[in-house]
Design a protein around this nucleic acid. Sequence first.
DNA 1: ATCTAAGCTTTCACTAACCGAAAGTTAGTT
DNA 2: AACTAACTTTCGGTTAGTGAAAGCTTAGAT
Lengths: 267, 267
Amino acid sequence: MTATTASTADEKPANQYRIESLAKGLQVLRLFDETTTSLKLRDICDLTGIPMPTAFRIVSTLEEDGFLDRSPEGVLQPGLSVLTLGSAALRGSSLVGVSERPLRHLAETTGETVNLGVLLGDQVLYLARLKNADLVTANVQVGSTLPAIYTSMGKLLLANLSPEQLDATIGTHSFTGDAGPNAVSSRAELDARLADIRKQGYAIQDQELAMGLRSVSVPVFGSGQVLVAAINIAVSSSRHTVETLRGPLLEALQATAADISARLRAL
Amino acid sequence: MTATTASTADEKPANQYRIESLAKGLQVLRLFDETTTSLKLRDICDLTGIPMPTAFRIVSTLEEDGFLDRSPEGVLQPGLSVLTLGSAALRGSSLVGVSERPLRHLAETTGETVNLGVLLGDQVLYLARLKNADLVTANVQVGSTLPAIYTSMGKLLLANLSPEQLDATIGTHSFTGDAGPNAVSSRAELDARLADIRKQGYAIQDQELAMGLRSVSVPVFGSGQVLVAAINIAVSSSRHTVETLRGPLLEALQATAADISARLRAL
DNA sequence: ATCTAAGCTTTCACTAACCGAAAGTTAGTT
DNA sequence: AACTAACTTTCGGTTAGTGAAAGCTTAGAT
């Protein structure tokens, strides 16, 4: 019995080479994100179920290595040195490297805000972002994540998953988040939209994430036609209708995606 | 004997709450930086001295949690999800938050490239960077690090360390790196420059890091007049002499630093 | 085609070090 | 001053992390 079927309800796929104490430390690190930039020791215990003495030791170790900073009052934050790791991740990514010029060109010729993103669980991770001067834009930067189902890049990426993968990533989603007026509100609605996206080859989001924001996304393929990322153009709803998104902007976006995909195949 | 003096040659200050297996995993993560974005298992063993089976388990665990990605050929890179951690670090930093507007204003009024940095060991870590359109600029981004002794921000920050701290951070530096034509080349020279910086209250770097780059840095103080960061203006040597750096640019920079410092005190 | 070796994966037995209950400390509150 | 909550430290039992050594796999050399 080598797993595969062993998923009755108990969460233990666990590869045999996992080091538990290291995994716990990483679990603590992963508690920090966009919206949760600081925690107290007690919070960490509550969120993870790790007993306090153990959490204390983990935090001490993370702090000693610069992965966490603690204020005199005991408030914990990610250490600034983790930026170096992030920097290495970006520099090492051929996707980001190859996309840089085409995206810059797209941003300059259209004058719009453009993004590059990948799927990370049920979130879209922003790998590149070139902002224009619009007053209202999503509060997103490189490294930010947003729920995939509320974004055009996210839905595009979700649409390319197998049914099993889709279930695994958003199967248990609640659809109750605070999103924009047109946000999908049920699994059935999401499935319908994903079907449309598969047919069309692009995804449009119209004030789903938040009032006033629209965007259109197209896929980027690596070698072997595997979907590796999405790029999009994000606009303020006051400047562009859904129709203009579908027109020349989509065309420019598709040309850029083709460019990036070609560069990726050439490696 | 509670350490403090226990530094004959053997490196074991080690707090008693350190979790060794977690610390080793973090040590592996810290191998990755700007210039080292991918490693093989064997490299990790060579660099850290960790035996291969242990390194294998560490890497498996880091991979499982998304902190490392491994290509089919076994090449390891930081996982893109570490960007989220970096993002949290930036968002959680009051220093970065408070500096954003003043720095943007400085960049716009002067039209120059401006940076915000802190000291991390013997390196300057760039926390914010607003680039102008100069053709020649340092290849630096948020999260990048550069050797402190070759940069104006670095020397400024070093100049504010106690002699003991200074020895601890750059005491064993080789001064043989590939730097610019005017780089400091000995500890004595560095000490002399740091003394000048302390007297002047600002630091200038003239083609020390690389040919063609000049910059001027001033300190940013937090509450209690403690030095927390440096900001600088970086220019191409073809557009500005050292004298113009010392003139109106320095003045604008100092005003911005005062602004940021005041905002930090107000918290 | 066969050999060689380097790099990676797996096994195994030992014991170091990780763990959490419980006790101790500190700081803020009623 | 008693009380509470959050954090720190101690301590012994036992787990789970460790590295030697043995397999495996791949790629390059002969």
